[in-house]
Write a protein that binds this DNA or RNA. Sequence first.
DNA 1: TTGTAAGCGTTATCAT
DNA 2: ATGATAACGCTTACAA
Lengths: 338, 338
Amino acid sequence: MSVTINDIARLSGVSKRTVSRVINCSPAVGKATRERVLEIIKETGFSPDKQARGLASSRSYLLGLIYDNPDALYIDEVQRGALSVCAELGYELVVHPGSSKRDDFISDCLSFISRSKLDGVIILPPVSENKALAAALREINCPYVRLASVDLDDADNIVVSDERAAMRDMATHLVELGHTDIGFISGPQHYRSSIERLAGFLAELQVYNVKLPTDRIVEGKNNYDSGLACAEQLLNTLPRPTAIVANNDEMAAAVLRVANNLNIRVPDELSVAGFDDNILASRIIPSLTTIRRPVFNMACLAVQKLINKSRNNQEKLALQKTVTPNLVTRESTGRVNG
Amino acid sequence: MSVTINDIARLSGVSKRTVSRVINCSPAVGKATRERVLEIIKETGFSPDKQARGLASSRSYLLGLIYDNPDALYIDEVQRGALSVCAELGYELVVHPGSSKRDDFISDCLSFISRSKLDGVIILPPVSENKALAAALREINCPYVRLASVDLDDADNIVVSDERAAMRDMATHLVELGHTDIGFISGPQHYRSSIERLAGFLAELQVYNVKLPTDRIVEGKNNYDSGLACAEQLLNTLPRPTAIVANNDEMAAAVLRVANNLNIRVPDELSVAGFDDNILASRIIPSLTTIRRPVFNMACLAVQKLINKSRNNQEKLALQKTVTPNLVTRESTGRVNG
DNA sequence: TTGTAAGCGTTATCAT
DNA sequence: ATGATAACGCTTACAA
């Protein structure tokens, strides 16, 4: 059938053990030997069998992606980012959407990992905030990297997007446009990301001495329907806020919808902003001011960290821990009484 | 470490070969023996090692997903559908976005397949229309299933969504609303899906004796920017069409944008429709009349067909070949002069 | 620096 | 119906 390590050994006149050393970049191989073997490998187009390799070394060259996140665009970007690094290094990506609400979620993830002897997993928010999962992974010694909005793990195990800082920028943006009465639709307060975003926003408002009374803050569920409800609550009070910031684009889209129903012009009478820079954000009318995370890069970093761990023989390069999202201003925010 | 087939053999007092037979549902095992072995397996929580299994049987229990499609929502739905079946049957899903424009695309896919000894691949549109790829897969004897809009393969190898029929429904819908002057933004005419959709639409118009002159048909590239250009072309002629149908939601969103810029009210002065039922379609204002494919189910079917093939010993159940998309009517279409 | 031999956990062959 | 034994293609002791 296809060419094996034995063929290479025979053809290059060395033992298979030596071929194995060459494949695995062992330094303990004579230069001449190495070159001869590599030559034969190239000629024959040999590539080592992953399964055999895995069986012998208990590695799989498979990385897992664990998530419970309805945002398909976010996931797609993560996958493409991760794969861009995987491809170079001979790894594949196995996907595993789950539902973190089920009580067998953790054991399901562990089973996923052991089933395919994954070499490591990337965990996306909001699952990445799950302490029990991280603990379970450490327990079974499974390398993992979390993508998160808060610094809740060692640099080896996390890539953080500084969403607090990003929301400070958002606050600055609105204050500079003259807004002093602002509504905020937060995400579920059991998510760290929701807490971070709100905290960053409030902190920066304080700098400008802009107050945001508690009745201007309503808690949504990060989905469209809850966004509608929250928007109605905020827009049916008088005086109305002149701006509403939502914890994500999905809920910001809901604000636009409610404003439209109530004949409130955006941004003339109401500024609206979201978070994510979804496809929605650029397509909806008016297009949405929002915040964009460097998701692709975060995924690249995650894979690099993961592979760094597997190759503990090599010299490890320290990889960046934090990345910075940036504000994207579009049509939905404008001057007060603009 | 973890429990192996040897442990099961020892504990249940049979040979490992017999355990293997039980695992693989071989009929050649006595009932009593089978039950005893299964009992032990359950007690110990044993699950066979995929890599060892693969090495011995040259199977991997891995399915691949090949695509070159920017629609993250479509892909996400496919992944979830495929995994819902994979999970039951002990398979995993490995993702592989590629760029079909590159001339090494096919060899890249083949390498992807052989690298991980995939048991089969699902191919999404528009890559699924690639004849050369399908031929190459048959050549190397790799089971595949294509998701497509046209019946271009055996029932074993394809799941077809009848988009021609769906677009007939769309035509009917518009004619019933009184539209007789309709613009059409097609997709690239080298895609069968684009051809099908346009053909279905035109065929049904003919039934109602509604003409659609060639200058009412412009070819877009299925992306937002091309949609903007096409929409401008159609809307800057007088008299304007009273309805515009686009080959996908992305371009339909562009039509809404241009209409907005030109102060054309939708649907009062212009009806707009798309195809896909993207998240966009329900969020944009006005929400978009569009066509929804049963993508999740298509993916389920694809995986079932794929696994059917691997298990050629078992009795094969004939699986559905064609599925029917359905029209979703929303705010963007309305009566003429409504 | 290189080679020998023993696994890794399954399935496949061929007996019985 | 069941079992002994040899693959499968590679890595990892352990030698030399």
